[in-house]
Design a protein around this nucleic acid. Sequence first.
DNA 1: TCTTGACAAACGAACGTTCGTTTGTGGTAT
DNA 2: ATACCACAAACGAACGTTCGTTTGTCAAGA
Lengths: 199, 199
Amino acid sequence: MVTTRNTREDIVAAAGRMFADKGYHGTSMRDLGGELGLLGSSLYSHIDSKEDLLVEVVDEGARLFLDASDRAMTGDGGAEQKLRALIAGHVDVVLDHLDVVRTYLNEARMLDESHRARVVSARDEYESRFRDVISQGVEEGVFRSDVDAKITSIFILSILNAIERWYRPDGGLDRTSLVEAIDRVATSGIQKPASRVPR
Amino acid sequence: MVTTRNTREDIVAAAGRMFADKGYHGTSMRDLGGELGLLGSSLYSHIDSKEDLLVEVVDEGARLFLDASDRAMTGDGGAEQKLRALIAGHVDVVLDHLDVVRTYLNEARMLDESHRARVVSARDEYESRFRDVISQGVEEGVFRSDVDAKITSIFILSILNAIERWYRPDGGLDRTSLVEAIDRVATSGIQKPASRVPR
DNA sequence: TCTTGACAAACGAACGTTCGTTTGTGGTAT
DNA sequence: ATACCACAAACGAACGTTCGTTTGTCAAGA
């Protein structure tokens, strides 16, 4: 037989893919087995329950974002560079782990109370890094003093988390341009500055 | 007996509520009946199928947004005012019809192909109104000429559509301030304009 | 030989839905 | 006013199917 055996990680990866596409409750164990060329029951040689799969995928999503933000915060630049690094790191996670991210963002709420609580606190921790960098920028004087760090961090994360809903890798917009576009709208908005010294 | 009877609209409303909370596939007809003090089977005195309920809720969501944008576009202001009206109208729809909106945004993809296609085209139409207003603003010269209307409209809608994920009516942020905050970050960003006469 | 991964059958529970029946209510004829 | 009827709403049992999961078996690698 030439078929390679499936590992536990194959199953988790396929679960991430299917949960992202059809949702947790919209994916049956038989669906998932079929994706791997197995019967649904055969999955139980590798895992204990369907919910374990969701926990595993969602935890991975949380970890990816936190790790990326760790890396972004280690730079020695000011708030502007740090914010841009956070944005770039987030975009990288979304584009490099699209299925995990989609499951993390959309299906985590299907977890039972205790697991969901862990995810929520990880998400809060992640969001606080954006908030802190924005606060820092306000203190440094590079961001306007009337900027509300909390709500602004929510807005930036809203843009970042929506990427999975519309971005297509073959859509003619590479990730550098995407980061650039997000960074520009976040920092400068769209309004033309009042002209001050024309010529 | 004092209990009032349930109408079809009660059922659709409850369906919107439950689909928003637990997802379409996460809500059983017995769950839904229980929400109304009925057996699951009793729902079929009013409806033909579970999917019909989803279609009805999602269609309502699409209609709410399109109607709001119709109203916003009738003003005679410039692009800046129109964009702000679009934002304010969107926020009103989200906050006044939270369950319908959550189902519209998160569960429409569970519809079968033909129904989903209708929703996608309604969403495209709605998005194009944001895009057109932004293009108009660029032509008018009130928005910077390097603004990409397509991607910018996506970003603004990302912020607007994420509201359902975090906003709490009792959270100390009223809707006027919310609209104001979105409008400001969209038009002005967060960066402090370069000062020209330092010191 | 021992472990692993997959099979295939089977489990009980839950699913969406159907069906025949009961119940309550409002209008009409008495 | 009372009796009647038509109808809509809800019941409750049951349908066939699918769900997540358990179990016992067996072939193949280590």
